[in-house]
Design a protein around this nucleic acid. Structure first.
Lengths: 150, 150
DNA sequence: CATAGTCGGTTGCAAAAATAAACTGACTCA
DNA sequence: TGAGTCAGTTTATTTTTGCAACCGACTATG
C-alpha cells in the first residue's frame, strides 16, 4: 500500500473529486448548468481542463453525457445519483464558507423546496436522538478497515 | 470581479482548503496528529509542501502553532474552532466515499463519544422538522448576494 | 570529545499540471 | 459566400508539485 491512509474514505473521495475544479463543476451542475459553454463561462475554467474534468466525471459515474442534438452531436452533462449524493458535502462546505468567509451572511442559502425554509445540516445520533458537535464525535475502524486508524 | 461565482461560499471555502492536501492534513489533525513528522509520515507528503500547507492553515486561522519545547523551539499544530468546524464537511465527504468507493463498507466509522453509536448526517428543515434528500433542496440568493446565482 | 541520529524545516531541480490562446470541425443563420 | 456558434483539441508558457539533498539546533551513544 502506497500510504497508510489509503483505506480512508476521505482519501478515496478526494482522489476522485479533490482537485481545484471538480467540486465547482459539480456545484454548477447542481445549479442546473448542463452544457460545456455554460460551465466554461460561469467558472472561467480553461476549455481543455473543463473537457478533461468532464471526462473524469463521466468516467467516475458522477455525471452522464447525454446527447441533446444531432448534426453535430452535442451532449449535455447531468449528475447521476452518485453525483447528486455529493449534495451534503457541498452543503457542508458552503455552510463553512458562510460562517468563516462571509461572517455568517450567506451569499446563497439552501431552502426546503416545499416550504422555503433555510435548511440546517446536523450530525445526528440515532440512539440518543440528538444532534452533536465535533467534540462528541470519535472515529474508529469500521468493517472495511485493514488496520487501526485510531 | 474575476468570475461570476466569486461570491459563492463554496468557492471561497475551496480557495482556502480546496487543494489536494489541505483536507487530508485537517483530517489527520482531527485524528490527533500534531507534529510535523507525524503528519509527514502518515500522509506521505513532501516536507516543503507540508510546511507550506501548515503555514497556510495557520495564516487562515484554521490551525494554530503552539510551542511544545524550547532548545530548539518546536511547535505542534492544533485545530482552532474554525478548523474544528470543518468536521461536517469531512464527515460528508467520508460518507460519500463509504457509499460510492467502498460499496457501503466504511473503513472508518464515526461514533458518538458518549454512547458509541455510529452517526448519521442529515439535512434538516426546522419548519417541517424533517430530514431531506437532495431533490428537496433549492438554492437561492441570500442576504450577502450581489447577483442572482439561481 | 567525536560522531551519529532526530526533528523540522529550506533549497534546488525535474516533472507534472494549470493557464491562455490559437486552431478545428460540424454545423446554422443572414 | 461569409460570419458566427458550439464543443472541443493542440500548442506554448507559467505555475505547482514531488523528490532529494542539505541545514541548524539540539540529544544520545561510544
Amino acid at each position: 500500500m502506497a500510504n497508510p491512509s489509503a483505506e480512508c474514505s476521505i482519501q478515496q473521495t478526494l482522489d476522485v473529486i479533490g482537485d481545484r475544479w471538480m467540486l465547482l463543476i459539480i456545484r454548477n451542475l447542481f445549479r442546473g448548468a448542463r452544457r460545456f459553454g455554460e460551465l466554461e463561462e460561469d467558472l472561467g475554467i480553461a476549455k481543455n481542463l473543463l473537457a478533461a474534468r468532464l471526462n473524469k466525471l463521466v468516467g467516475a459515474g458522477i455525471a452522464e453525457r447525454v446527447p441533446y442534438q444531432d448534426r453535430p452531436v452535442r451532449h449535455e452533462y447531468l449528475l447521476t445519483q452518485k453525483g447528486r449524493d455529493l449534495s451534503p458535502s457541498l452543503v457542508a462546505l458552503m455552510k463553512w464558507g458562510d460562517r468563516w468567509c462571509n461572517e455568517g451572511s450567506a451569499p446563497t442559502v439552501l431552502v426546503h423546496a416545499d416550504c422555503g425554509t433555510p435548511l440546517m445540516q446536523v450530525t445526528h445520533c440515532p440512539t440518543c436522538d440528538d444532534s452533536l458537535d465535533p467534540g462528541q464525535i470519535r472515529s474508529r475502524p469500521g468493517p472495511g478497515a485493514q488496520e487501526a486508524l485510531r
